[in-house]
Simulated assay, not measured.
Amino acid sequence: MPSTEIENPAHVAGHTTAHPAAFRFAARLLPLLAEAELLDSPAGWGSVTTPAGAFRLEPIRLGRDLELLTRWMNEPDAAAHWELAGPASVTAAHLRAQLDGDGSSTPCIGYLDGTPMSYWEIYRADLDPLARHYRAHPHDTGIHLLIADGTHRGRGLGTTLLRTVANLVLDNRPRCTRVIAEPDIRNTPSVSAFLASGFRCSTEIELPGKRAALMIRERALRNLI
């Protein structure tokens, strides 16, 4: 895999000697290069038409999204499965671990007809600790989903959006042959939504804090299920 390391950030800015502006430019550029290399830039995947409306993923910006996400994470259903209830600092720490990381996980807001209504994490499952618990393939891409508030739950929307985002991954990540998820087996609505959206349950695995259903959607079976 090509390296994203830049030995002399000044060269990035077109200078031959170090300059503070060059270092600032490199600091902004490196996370973008990592995301582009590891996840093929979810920010550029665009909007798609679904039976529920126009849907798009927008990578998280803390200054814009933290208050909204904190509210979502404190809803009872979200708190039960995400364990991020509490003040904004709790949600911020969870997001910063991804935003300041190596680009292998991108947190996003899902917009439906322009309205923010879901939280997603698109991540490299083969580079994640999850890979210790199953036989990972190169470029396996994982997804986590939270549908916000009760107005968007219980009407099949999760199934529609899971299929949509799995298709976005497969359309925009040509090296990825499988989309992976690991919902808690106790979360019956989530498991059912994955099954209805074309995933199959490969096995059950023990993860820290939960027993999970390993859900897989394969590119080769994309048009069959």
Rank of each mutant, 00 (worst) to 15 (best):
L145D: 00
G101R: 03
R155L: 12
Y119W: 12
M117F: 15
P116H: 08
G156M: 04
S105T: 13
R163P: 06
R124E: 00
P107L: 05
I122G: 05
T164G: 04
D128A: 06
I122C: 10
Q98G: 13
M117I: 13
H137G: 14
R155F: 11
H144D: 00
D100N: 12
G156F: 07
T160L: 10
G142L: 00
G150K: 13
C108E: 10
A93S: 14
D102T: 09
G150E: 15
G110C: 11
Y123N: 01
H133N: 08
L162Q: 04
P107A: 02
E121T: 12
V165S: 04
D128K: 01
G154T: 02
D149R: 14
Y134M: 00
A92M: 13
A131R: 09
R163D: 08
L127H: 14
M117C: 14
L112K: 05
L146G: 00
T159K: 07
L127V: 09
L127K: 15
L146Y: 05
A148W: 03
H133L: 01
L157M: 00
D128R: 06
M117H: 11
G142Q: 01
L162C: 08
R124G: 09
C108G: 10
L162R: 01
S118G: 15
T159A: 11
L99T: 06
V165I: 10
D126V: 05
S105G: 14
G110E: 05
L95R: 05
H144Y: 04
E121Q: 13
T160P: 09
R163Q: 08
A148Y: 05
A93I: 12
P138A: 10
H137V: 14
R153V: 06
A125W: 09
G103K: 04
M117Q: 12
R132E: 11
L162M: 11
H94P: 10
R132T: 05
H152V: 09
A93K: 14
L112T: 01
H137Y: 14
C108T: 02
D100I: 07
R135S: 12
E121F: 10
T160W: 09
L95K: 06
T115M: 14
G158T: 03
L145R: 03
H152R: 14
Y134D: 07
T159F: 06
A93W: 11
A125G: 03
L130Y: 07
G103H: 03
D100Y: 10
D100V: 01
T106M: 15
R155M: 12
V165D: 07
P107H: 04
D140F: 06
G156K: 06
I147R: 01
G158L: 07
Y119P: 06
L157T: 00
I147H: 00
T115H: 14
T106C: 15
H133R: 11
